[in-house]
Simulated scan of single mutants.
Amino acid sequence: MAEETMKDFSKEIESSFRKIKEGDIIDGTVIGVNDTEVILDIKYYTQGIIRLEELSDDPKFSIHRDINVGDEVSATVISTDDGEGNILLSKRRANEVLAWDKLNALLESGEYVDVKISEAVKGGAVAFLEGIRGFIPASKLDLSFVEEDKLADYVGKTAKVRVITSDEENGKLVLSAKDYLKEQADLKRKEMVSNVEVGLVTEGTVESLQNYGAFVDLGNGLSGLVHISQICNNRIAHPSAVLKVGQKVKVKVISIKDGKLSLSMKALEDIAATEITEEKIEYPSDGDATTSLAALLKKAGF
Rank of each mutant, 00 (worst) to 15 (best):
residue 7 K to T: 12
residue 25 I to C: 05
residue 100 W to F: 10
residue 48 G to M: 07
residue 11 K to G: 13
residue 233 N to E: 12
residue 142 D to L: 06
residue 152 A to K: 12
residue 23 G to E: 09
residue 198 V to R: 14
residue 230 Q to T: 02
residue 68 N to H: 14
residue 58 D to V: 08
residue 136 I to L: 03
residue 50 I to H: 04
residue 192 M to W: 13
residue 48 G to S: 04
residue 79 S to R: 13
residue 279 E to T: 12
residue 111 E to K: 14
residue 228 I to R: 06
residue 126 V to S: 04
residue 263 L to Q: 02
residue 139 S to P: 00
residue 110 G to C: 03
residue 209 L to F: 04
residue 117 I to P: 02
residue 262 S to W: 03
residue 86 N to W: 09
residue 155 V to L: 06
residue 145 F to W: 10
residue 221 G to W: 10
residue 220 N to V: 14
residue 61 F to I: 08
residue 248 K to Q: 14
residue 105 A to Y: 12
residue 11 K to E: 14
residue 180 Y to W: 09
residue 242 V to L: 07
residue 124 G to H: 01
residue 146 V to C: 01
residue 82 D to I: 12
residue 235 R to P: 04
residue 83 G to N: 01
residue 8 D to R: 15
residue 234 N to A: 15
residue 70 G to F: 09
residue 274 T to Q: 13
residue 136 I to Q: 01
residue 42 I to D: 04
residue 27 D to G: 11
residue 281 I to E: 01
residue 206 V to S: 11
residue 47 Q to M: 06
residue 47 Q to H: 07
residue 234 N to I: 10
residue 246 G to S: 06
residue 64 H to D: 08
residue 119 E to M: 11
residue 263 L to T: 03
residue 116 K to I: 15
residue 249 V to N: 01
residue 249 V to K: 00
residue 95 N to M: 11
residue 225 L to Q: 08
residue 162 R to C: 03
residue 59 P to H: 08
residue 167 D to V: 14
residue 3 E to N: 13
residue 215 F to A: 13
residue 71 D to N: 15
residue 224 G to T: 05
residue 36 T to H: 11
residue 85 G to S: 07
residue 285 S to N: 09
residue 119 E to L: 05
residue 68 N to A: 11
residue 262 S to A: 12
residue 208 S to Y: 08
residue 163 V to Q: 00
residue 284 P to W: 07
residue 89 L to N: 07
residue 109 S to A: 06
residue 82 D to N: 15
residue 301 G to V: 03
residue 280 K to S: 03
residue 287 G to K: 15
residue 296 L to Q: 02
residue 212 Y to I: 02
residue 165 T to M: 12
